[in-house]
Computed example of a mutant assay.
Amino acid sequence: MRGQPRILINTPEIELWRGGLLRARSNFDARALARARHVLRRKRDGQYLAVDLPEGLLALVPHLRREPGLDAALDAIDAPPSHLRAGIEHVRELPLDRLEERLHALGLDGEYGERTGLELVAEPDWLAFAGFDRYRRPLWLHVEAARAWSHLHDAALRDGIVLEAISGYRSHDYQLGIFERKLARGLGVEEILTVNAAPGYSEHHSGLALDIGAPDEPPAEESFEGTAAFAWLRDNAEGFGFVMSYPRDNPHGIVYEPWHWRYQSG
């Protein structure tokens, strides 16, 4: 993988980050991350599990070998997707069966999709580095969306408009973790669904959607509609392949989100 663009290799339960992109959480982490070729990061809670060093794998958690999904992650280190090795930018989707099992456990079978008109969204097997978001976190997007976002951002700058990425790709496990933590606090599923999309139904899972903000504006607030940044997006975003997914009175019953834009190829 040396010499290739920075990418996130995605397996069902573990992400493989290139070294140098994650923030150290301790002195031990800092020393390990500084030398890492890859970092194995649990998707559910962001825990750093191990680093791939030139001399071998260094565990960062006890009982690493018991970690669910470890074998698939190690296979991805040893043999990254053939289309990446060949320099081809084709993106494949991860299977949905594991997600469907967990949705069933939450009582969210097909009824939620039927009620909202939303479909389950698969995760890509790899994502492209698209710079950093407002909070200096790495921004991961589908490779086509990453390229389009770069063009969109630069065109806005030429017109004197600053667009800030708030968030891009989010995993199924990340969204499931939100649900599990709120359930543990005693909230019911329907109550959680009033403020959080059901896991698997967010466009962010695809890497094709991102939330956009403007300097000095709070993130993901309807007030973004009144900014020069939004006015520019309204007039220009479609020319770069981006559309606003959830306008007012959208058929999915999702609140108006002027900050949420999705790239659609072709």
Rank of each mutant, 00 (worst) to 15 (best):
A30N: 08
A32V: 07
A32M: 12
A34Q: 08
A34T: 09
R35L: 07
A36Q: 03
A36P: 03
L40S: 02
K43S: 04
K43A: 08
R44Y: 11
R44V: 09
R44L: 12
R44F: 05
D45S: 01
Q47L: 12
L49Y: 09
L49W: 10
L49H: 07
L49M: 11
A50G: 08
A50Y: 04
V51W: 00
V51I: 06
V51K: 02
V51M: 00
L53Y: 02
E55T: 13
E55P: 05
G56T: 11
L57G: 09
L57R: 13
L58A: 12
L58S: 10
L58P: 06
A59E: 06
A59T: 08
V61A: 05
P62M: 06
R66F: 02
R66M: 05
R66H: 09
E67W: 01
E67T: 13
G69Q: 02
L70W: 07
D71V: 13
D71A: 14
D71R: 12
D71T: 13
A72V: 11
L74V: 10
L74F: 09
L74H: 01
D75C: 05
D75F: 03
A76F: 10
I77H: 07
D78N: 10
D78C: 12
A79L: 09
A79E: 09
P80R: 08
P80L: 11
P80E: 07
S82R: 15
S82A: 15
H83I: 12
H83M: 13
L84I: 14
L84P: 10
R85Q: 15
A86N: 15
H90V: 14
H90D: 15
H90L: 15
R92W: 10
E93F: 01
P95Y: 02
P95I: 01
P95M: 00
P95T: 01
L96Y: 04
L96R: 04
D97G: 01
D97E: 11
R102A: 01
L103V: 03
H104P: 04
A105H: 07
A105C: 06
L106H: 07
L106D: 00
G107L: 08
G107S: 09
L108T: 03
L108F: 08
L108W: 03
L108I: 05
G110E: 15
E111V: 08
E111L: 10
Y112W: 08
Y112Q: 10
Y112M: 08
G113T: 11
G113I: 11
E114G: 13
E114F: 11
R115F: 05
L118A: 03
L120I: 08
V121M: 09
V121T: 10
E123Y: 04
P124G: 09
D125N: 11
W126A: 06
W126H: 10
W126M: 06
L127E: 00
A128M: 05
F129H: 03
F132L: 14
D133F: 04
D133E: 09
R137F: 05
P138K: 00
L141E: 02
L141Y: 00
V143H: 01
E144K: 12
A145K: 00
W149M: 05
S150R: 14
L152T: 13
H153C: 14
H153P: 05
A155W: 10
A155R: 14
A156I: 12
A156T: 12
L157G: 14
R158I: 11
R158D: 14
G160L: 13
G160I: 13
L163F: 09
E164A: 11
E164T: 04
E164K: 10
A165F: 04
A165E: 02
A165I: 06
I166S: 10
S167F: 04
G168Q: 02
G168E: 00
Y169W: 11
